[in-house]
């Protein structure tokens, strides 16, 4: 009997050896740690069922700009799932690892889920922060990461800008003044969104955190629900964190098929449900409706409408000598 069991075990080992072990490297940005932990498990199970192959998805997380830089420097990503399109454009542009039309290859701007920028405040909202102008009231300290390295920080910056430019009586010049004033209220610029959340939540610095919606929900959950509150401003920005296969790396590894299937999976009902559960706004209308309680419907500006797309926004606002460099004077 025991011999038989060993024999069976040996046989199953042989079987396992026939099916290939494949691995993917997904280089992502900070707040997706929990999301991709769940997605990877679900997709690996599905892939195993479909092909018999054992799939391991390895993860590397950093600020979106830092992750993009690492891929440009040679971090061998099969897929990138970053906070904004410009950071993938940079990989296409500087390292030529994928074609510049990458964003056309998957539906909806290559973005399976969206998010937005919200305020996280301390319990009871002691500063009565309700909307963007409240952030620049005297004495309010705002925590947000460095727009040069963090994707979430760029979305936050642009959300504030869009508010100030589009409100009645607003203008480009007034928006610039508002942003300059806003960053005078920022005592800490971490390099990534997760760093900022830690600064705000664990170290008790600042009165309001400009945060990804999903990151704010997660902080709320981690803290046990009685330390923070989420505040939705009167309007915000439609943040589209895109995904892409890094062609040259995937082809070199022979993983293009599984890499493409992995990204397709992100649009499936199963994955959309996981994304909603991890507080990303799913593209699927039914699933979004089912989770409507977590995702209040506020007006969201799109980057194309207000800023003419990422390339232009990046160049005007975040390049060396751009608006951010002009208005941000640290230590003052």
């Amino acid at each position: 009997m025991r011999k038989l069991a060993i024999f069976a075990a040996a046989l199953s080992l042989c079987g396992a050896a026939h099916a290939a072990d494949v691995s993917l490297l997904n280089v992502s940005y900070d707040p997706t740690r929990e999301l991709y932990k769940d997605i990877n498990a679900a997709f690996a199970a599905q892939w195993k069922q479909k092909t018999g192959d054992t799939l391991t998805v390895n993860m590397s997380h950093n600020g979106s700009g830092a992750s993009s830089r690492a891929v440009i420097d040679g971090l061998d990503a099969d897929v990138v799932t970053l906070a904004l399109a410009y950071d993938i454009d940079a990989i296409a542009d500087k390292a030529k690892l994928l074609p510049s039309n990458w964003q056309k290859r998957l539906p909806q701007n290559s973005t399976p889920y969206t998010s937005t920028v919200v305020f996280l405040v301390r319990k009871g909202n002691p500063w009565h922060i309700k909307d963007w102008p409240d952030l620049v009231r005297p004495g309010v300290h705002v925590v947000t990461p460095n727009p040069k390295t963090s994707g979430g920080a760029r979305w936050s910056y642009l959300a504030a800008w869009a508010y100030a430019e589009k409100k009645p009586g607003g203008s480009w010049e007034k928006a610039k003044q508002f942003i300059a004033e806003l960053y005078r209220h920022v005592p800490v610029l971490d390099t990534g969104a997760r760093g900022s959340t830690t600064t705000f939540a664990q170290r008790g610095i600042g009165d309001v955190l400009l945060s990804w919606e999903n990151e704010a929900h997660l902080a709320l959950k981690e803290a046990g629900g009685d330390k923070f509150e989420i505040v939705y401003p009167s309007n915000s920005i439609l943040a589209e964190p895109p995904v892409a296969v890094v062609d040259k790396n995937a082809d070199r590894h022979g993983t293009r098929k599984v890499a493409e299937a992995y990204l397709q999976f992100l649009y499936s009902k199963e994955a959309q449900e996981i994304e909603a559960k991890d507080f990303y706004r799913p593209r699927d209308k039914d699933i979004l409706a089912a989770h409507a309680r977590d995702f209040p419907n506020i007006p969201l500006y799109s980057i194309d409408d207000v800023f003419g797309g990422w390339t232009k926004a990046q160049q005007v606002h975040f390049s060396d000598g751009g608006v951010f460099d002009q208005i941000y004077k640290p230590g003052q």
């Binding site: 440009i72 420097d73 040679g74 061998d76 390292a95 070199r252």
Partner: peptide
């Protein structure tokens, strides 16, 4: 990859950094 030897190493399938 953008350094002195990065591209050559990649062409030969040699990984050093990361």
């Amino acid at each position: 990859l953008q350094g002195w030897l990065g591209q050559d190493l990649r062409d030969h399938g040699i990984k050093i950094v990361f």
